[in-house]
């Protein structure tokens, strides 16, 4: 007789089916989270670029791109780069000191200009002109809808796919059974 310690085969099958379904949902949620962070990161970079100092003449004289043109984001999921500029993708590494744990999704918004941190934090002879932190703080309070919206879209797509998949599997099984009967 089945008991909690010795569950029936039917129960084991149901549990296994449940676990498989949840794994699919978690994958979709991770993907949704990454999508939401990409959207949020692009918003932060666009906002920071607006706030960044723009001196086209000085940049041209030095032969370097303008500070506000050097913003980029990268997103790391489960320890791997899932979205990033060609610069980050080519380097295949993260900024110094950033850890991407296997159970986390992280988004890095950065400006590649060598003077970006000096503008942001200031120097002895120049006060700070922060542009990235204000953009971050202006957008971080609205971060929830970006991530939850993308996660909901992925979850909906995943459940639709799962439904379609189970329908197709049932049809295939029925066709296989009919074929076997015909042969028999």
């Amino acid at each position: 007789m089945a008991s909690p310690k010795a569950p029936s085969e039917k129960l084991i099958a149901r549990r296994a089916a449940k676990i498989v379904m949840n794994k699919a949902a978690i994958d979709a949620l991770y993907a949704g989270m990454a999508d939401g962070l990409i959207e949020l990161g692009n918003k932060i970079i666009a906002d920071a670029s607006e706030r960044a100092p723009k001196d086209a003449a000085a940049a041209a004289a030095r032969g370097v791109p303008m500070l506000n043109d050097t913003g980029h984001i990268s997103v790391w999921g489960q320890g791997k780069l899932v979205y990033g500029s060609s610069q980050v993708a080519a380097a295949k590494n993260r900024p110094r000191g950033v850890r991407a744990a296997k159970d986390e999704i992280i988004m890095i918004a950065a400006f590649g200009s060598p003077i970006a941190h000096l503008q942001e934090l200031g120097t002895i002879k120049m006060p700070a002109h922060p542009f990235l932190t204000p953009a971050l703080m202006a957008n971080i309070s609205n971060a929830g809808p970006y991530v939850t919206g993308a996660m909901s879209r992925y979850a909906a797509t995943a459940s639709t796919r799962a439904l379609r998949g189970s329908g197709i599997n049932a049809a295939r099984a029925a066709a296989k059974a009919a074929k076997a009967e015909g042969i028999g």
Binding site: L121, A128, P130, P134
Partner: peptide, 17 residues
């Protein structure tokens, strides 16, 4: 040198970060 980088005001309470 202490420099202020930015702030975020709570929409729900009279607080700021």
């Amino acid at each position: 040198v202490l420099a202020r980088l930015g702030h975020s005001r709570s929409p729900h309470a009279p607080t700021q970060a």
